[in-house]
């Protein structure tokens, strides 16, 4: 199960391709003809109005749910399983309150004891998120941002090829959020996993994504490459015009009368 033993540190990201994915809950068609292809190591930000199917797509990607039709192919030959290559981070850290910070990170390696190798992996993952000295603490004593960093360490300890993030910073205050964005960026730059991040914050999507993808009516309606040098300057003119363009597209849907869905 634990692929940390198989994939070396920094093995990099895996490609992902969603082909004509459909997902319906009863009568309700949430995803329709959803196509998306992501290159290895790419960072894709996903935006879209609430209820447009972003979380649904990530759940299909992590195989927590199955598509009604279509396929999601993982890895170079499309044969990798989500359980072995995809890790997920949520808006809530979902830490075990009764396990120490270190034991929470160990969960990320799946079943198994506290062997020296596993402990070393967990410690280095904690060090990567700047919490090396907090390994023996209970999650309850950490701040919201620190808890989310533990969750990030847990997601990354097994060096996944793909990291799916569902509004990972949505619950944090503005300042912590900006700190976490640069942490996320630097961790991604050093490990080079493929990242898919759902966010409702357009500047955040632009600051982190190589591409920003807009989902509307269950499929991708806009796919923009962000060609700005990192770390990105939010005040810059190029940043601003991208932001305006995305917001404009989002707002247009908001202004149009209901019944678009």
């Amino acid at each position: 199960m634990s692929f940390a033993d198989v994939r070396d540190d920094g093995a990099g990201g895996l490609a992902l391709e969603a082909r004509r994915v459909e997902k319906a809950f009863g009568e309700k068609r949430v995803l329709r003809g959803f196509d998306l292809s992501v290159a290895p190591g790419e960072f894709v930000s996903i935006v879209g109005r609430s209820g447009c199917g972003k979380s649904t797509f990530l759940r299909l990607l992590t195989e927590l749910d199955v598509p009604t039709a279509g396929r999601i192919l993982l890895g170079p030959d499309g044969s990798a399983t989500a359980a072995s290559v995809v890790r997920m981070m949520y808006q809530e850290p979902r830490l075990l309150p009764w396990a120490s910070v270190l034991d929470n990170v160990l969960i990320g390696l799946g079943d198994g004891g506290r062997s020296a190798g596993r402990l070393a992996s967990a410690r280095s993952a904690l060090a990567a998120v700047g919490l090396a000295d907090r390994e023996r603490e209970w999650p309850a004593v950490l701040s919201g941002g620190q808890r989310q960093r533990v969750a990030l360490a847990r997601a990354l300890v097994s060096n996944p090829g793909i990291l799916a993030l569902d509004e990972p910073l949505g619950a944090l205050d503005a300042l912590t959020r900006i700190e976490m964005q640069s942490l996320l960026e630097s961790v991604w730059q050093s490990k080079r996993f493929t990242a898919l991040m759902v966010t409702h914050d357009v500047p955040e999507a632009i600051a982190l994504g190589d591409r920003v993808v807009l989902i509307e009516d269950g499929s991708v309606t806009l796919d923009i490459a962000v060609d700005l040098p990192r770390p990105r300057q939010r005040g810059s003119q190029a940043f601003g015009s991208l932001e305006a363009r995305l917001l404009d597209q989002l707002m247009r849907r908001a202004d149009s009368p209901a019944g678009v869905v």
Binding site: T62, L64, R87, M88, E92, R94, I107, G108, L109, G110
Partner: peptide, 11 residues
């Protein structure tokens, strides 16, 4: 949510 989390990590 914790149970789903643990399952998704192959526990």
């Amino acid at each position: 949510q914790l149970i789903e989390m643990a399952r998704s990590y192959g526990i």
